[in-house]
Computed example of a mutant assay.
Amino acid sequence: MDPDLIRIASDRLTATVSPLGAEMQSLRTAGGADLLWHGDPAWWSGRAPILFPIVGKAPGDRIAVGDHEADMRQHGFARRSRFELDAQGADSCRHVLRDSAETRALYPFAFELAVSHALAGDRLSVSVEIANRDPKPMPFGFGFHPAFAWPLPGAGGAPHEIRLDNGAEPPMARLQDGLLPPDREPSPFAAGRLVLAPEQFDADAMIFPEGAGDGLRYGVPGGPELAFSFENLPNLALWTIPGAPYLCVEPWHGMAAATGASPQIAKRPFSLSLAPGDTARFAWHVTAHL
């Protein structure tokens, strides 16, 4: 195991977290079954990146804050930044990213981004606190991007589903050249239920800007399932590369820039503005039912 990886464990689960991006690298049952995607670069090298200070693409890969403009790749810089280990216990750890000359050249704010991973029984919690240490309001978007095994361990060839806790049928958006168009497509959900198939991702991610709610289940009804809950994360995306053995369940507070929009972060859909000295919190939790 990479000596920089932090290992945490409960009686039911183990996880490892890298200081690069504060990204979880594994989530396993006590029996050794992998729940998290293992990051095979033949498909996609990510596993559970943290998205900050933008979610998705910017027009021409350029962002702006007032008169400040800079290049910024999709999903921001946090996932490619090295975090410091701030705290570690047997079942939890906390990593922190603080602004630097490098980040301020891109994003002109003093900030602190803390990512905590914690295990309790068969439940994982991942929480983030973003603090504005700057004297001016700080616009940003934030999101989680974890990828899970598809099929789940023990599920065999059984069809997998997403079932929304709220039973809704939220309208869907499809990106155009990486940006968010104004139009919505009919929901693929029926009474909160979506039976997954690889061809649903031929047109890239399924994005639900509103209405997906604060919880869902992924897996096989009556069989292996993961039960999710979300805090302060009103947007949802589901993504994979067609045929790849993973599914990303992505709760966000922020979206790709709208088509035809300016590069201003503050103008992006669902962007937040954090007052000087304030802190915003986001979290997701997953319980394994295997």
Rank of each mutant, 00 (worst) to 15 (best):
A48R: 03
P49C: 07
I50W: 02
L51W: 02
P53A: 05
I54E: 04
I54G: 00
V55H: 03
G56H: 05
G56I: 07
K57G: 09
A58T: 05
A58V: 03
A58Y: 07
P59K: 07
P59L: 06
P59Y: 05
D61F: 07
D61N: 12
I63G: 00
V65T: 14
G66T: 10
D67K: 11
D71Y: 11
R73L: 14
R73F: 13
G76R: 07
A78Y: 02
A78C: 05
A78D: 08
R79V: 00
R80Q: 13
R80W: 10
R80T: 15
S81D: 08
S81E: 12
S81Q: 06
D86E: 15
D86M: 06
A87C: 08
G89E: 12
A90S: 14
A90I: 08
S92Y: 14
S92V: 01
S92A: 12
C93S: 10
C93K: 07
H95A: 05
R98A: 11
A101E: 15
E102W: 06
T103P: 03
R104C: 00
R104W: 00
A105Y: 02
L106A: 11
Y107W: 15
Y107K: 01
P108G: 03
F109D: 00
A110H: 14
F111H: 06
F111G: 01
E112L: 04
E112S: 13
E112Y: 07
L113W: 06
L113M: 10
A114S: 15
A114H: 01
V115Y: 01
S116R: 15
S116M: 12
H117K: 06
H117W: 15
H117L: 11
A118R: 15
A118P: 00
A120G: 14
D122H: 13
R123V: 13
L124W: 15
V126S: 04
V126L: 08
V126I: 14
S127Q: 09
S127M: 06
E129K: 11
A131I: 05
A131H: 11
A131S: 14
R133D: 12
P135F: 03
P135L: 08
P135M: 05
K136D: 13
K136H: 15
M138F: 08
G141L: 12
G141W: 02
G141R: 01
G141M: 09
F144H: 08
H145G: 10
P146W: 09
A147H: 05
A147R: 13
F148I: 11
A149S: 15
A149Y: 03
P151C: 13
P153D: 10
A155W: 04
A155M: 07
A155G: 10
G157F: 09
P159R: 06
P159C: 08
H160D: 03
H160F: 08
H160S: 08
H160E: 10
E161F: 11
E161A: 12
I162G: 02
R163L: 12
R163K: 08
D165W: 06
A168W: 04
A168F: 02
A168T: 13
P171A: 12
A173R: 15
A173D: 04
L175N: 08
Q176N: 12
Q176A: 12
D177P: 00
G178M: 04
L179C: 05
E185I: 02
E185Y: 10
P186M: 09
P186D: 11
